[in-house]
Design a protein around this nucleic acid. Structure first.
Lengths: 212, 212
DNA sequence: GTCTATAGACCGATAGAC
DNA sequence: GTCTATCGGTCTATAGAC
C-alpha cells in the first residue's frame, strides 16, 4: 500500500503524509458514494445523510471535505469529466472521426448502464452556480467539448457526418445520450441485454429511425 | 362557453351544476398551474404552496381536490395524455405512417418548447406507484402507445422505418423526444428559433447524425 | 500534552399533510 | 393556520495520531 511505502525509512515521508493519504482516500470514497447516489436517485432525492451513511462517516465529517451538497455533486461531475478525458486519451486519433464519436457515445452509455453516470437537474440554479464556478469542472468540460468538436467538424468535412447540422447540435445530441432515459426504459423492459440496448440506441442516434 | 350552454333553459341543468362547474373550473386551473410548474422546475422542486399561490387558493383547498402532491402530478400527466389523444384524433390516418410519427414527434417538441410539457423523474417510487394506479393515465398511455405502435409496424412493413429496430425501441425513442434536454440546450444557446431547433432534432431523430 | 478529525446531538427552515 | 417530519448545515465533547 502506498501509505506504507511513503512511511518507509529509505524514502522519508513528508510530514503528515499518513493523514493526507487517509484524507484523500476518504475523499475518493465520498465522491464514489455521491456518484452512485446521483446516478441512482438524482440530486434532489439524494440526502447528505445518505452519503455519510454510505461512506460510513459522520455527516459533519463530510463538511470538512466539501462545503455544501452542491459541491459534493460538483466533485462527482469533476470525476466523471476526468474519466471522460482519460477515455478520450486512450482513443486512437488516427481512426475516422465518425468512429471516434461513436466510441464516445458508446462509452457514455456503458457508464450509464453501469449505474455510474450522475445526472443533475439542469434547472437548479444554486447547483448551476456551483458548477459554473468550479474551475476543474469547467476546464474539463471545455477540453472534452473542444476535442469532440474537432472530430465533429472533421467528420462533416469528410462527408461522413451530416454537414447541415450545426456542430453544437451534434455535440449536445451526443451529450444527451449520456442521460438518455431510453436506456433505462429498454433495460426495464427486461427483453434486451446491455449490449443490445447500446447497439439499438447507437443505431437510432447515428443512423436515425428511418430506413436507409 | 360550455358552462352557459349547460345552464340554458332549453336544456335544464342538473341540480348543483353551478357548484360542479365551479369545482371543475377550479380543478382545471389547478391542473394548469401544476402542468406549468412541473414543466418549469420538475416534480421535486415544485412545492404545493407554489401551486396554491399560483391558483390563488388556500393550500387546504388543494387537498379537497387532490389527496397528495403525487396525485397533482398524475392529474397533469392525465391531461397531457388527453391532449396527445386529441392530437392523434386530428391526424389524417390516410397519410404515410412515417409522416404521422414525425408529426407526433414534432408536436411533443412544440409542447415542450412552449413550456407545457411536465417532466417527472422516472426513478421516484411513490410517484410511480401513484401513476401506475391511476386508471385514466394508464389507459391513456396504453391507447397512445397502441396507436403509435400500429404506425411503427406499418412503417416498418412499408420499408420507410428501419425494420431491424424493435417497435418498442422506436416508441421509447419518440417518447424521449418529449423531454429531450437537447431542446433546452439549443434554446439556451440563443442562436436558433424554435422552428429551427425542432427541425434539427427531427432530423437527428429520423435521419440520424450520419450523412445520407 | 497538543491538535485535528470525528461522532452524534442539535438547529432553523421548509415541505407535505390535514 | 398548524403540526410533524425531514433536510441541509452546525456545534461540542472526545478519541486518537503525533
Amino acid at each position: 500500500m502506498d501509505t506504507l511505502a511513503l512511511q518507509s525509512p529509505s524514502e522519508p515521508a513528508p510530514k503528515r503524509s499518513f493523514r493526507q493519504q487517509m484524507h484523500l482516500a476518504r475523499e475518493d470514497a465520498i465522491v464514489s458514494a455521491v456518484n452512485r447516489l446521483l446516478a441512482e436517485k438524482g440530486f434532489e432525492s439524494m440526502t447528505v445523510d445518505e452519503v455519510a451513511a454510505e461512506v460510513g462517516i459522520a455527516k459533519a465529517s463530510l463538511y470538512k471535505h466539501f462545503p455544501s451538497k452542491e459541491d459534493l455533486a460538483a466533485a462527482a461531475m469533476v470525476r466523471v469529466m476526468q474519466r471522460a478525458q482519460a477515455f478520450l486519451d486512450g482513443l486512437d486519433t488516427k481512426r475516422p472521426p465518425l468512429d471516434l464519436l461513436r466510441e464516445v457515445a458508446r462509452w457514455t452509455m456503458v457508464v450509464q448502464l453501469a449505474g455510474e453516470m450522475p445526472s443533475l437537474p439542469s434547472e437548479n440554479s444554486s447547483l448551476r452556480a456551483t458548477l459554473t464556478t468550479n474551475k476543474a469542472y469547467v476546464d474539463g468540460l471545455m477540453d472534452v467539448s473542444d476535442r469532440l468538436g474537432a472530430w465533429i467538424t472533421a467528420a462533416q468535412a469528410e462527408g461522413s457526418l451530416n454537414p447541415s447540422l450545426p456542430p453544437i447540435a451534434v455535440l449536445y445530441t451526443l451529450y444527451a445520450r449520456a442521460c438518455d432515459p431510453v436506456l433505462g426504459f429498454l433495460k426495464g423492459s427486461g427483453q434486451y441485454s446491455n449490449e443490445q440496448i447500446i447497439e439499438m440506441v447507437l443505431s437510432t442516434c447515428f443512423d436515425g429511425l428511418k430506413a436507409r
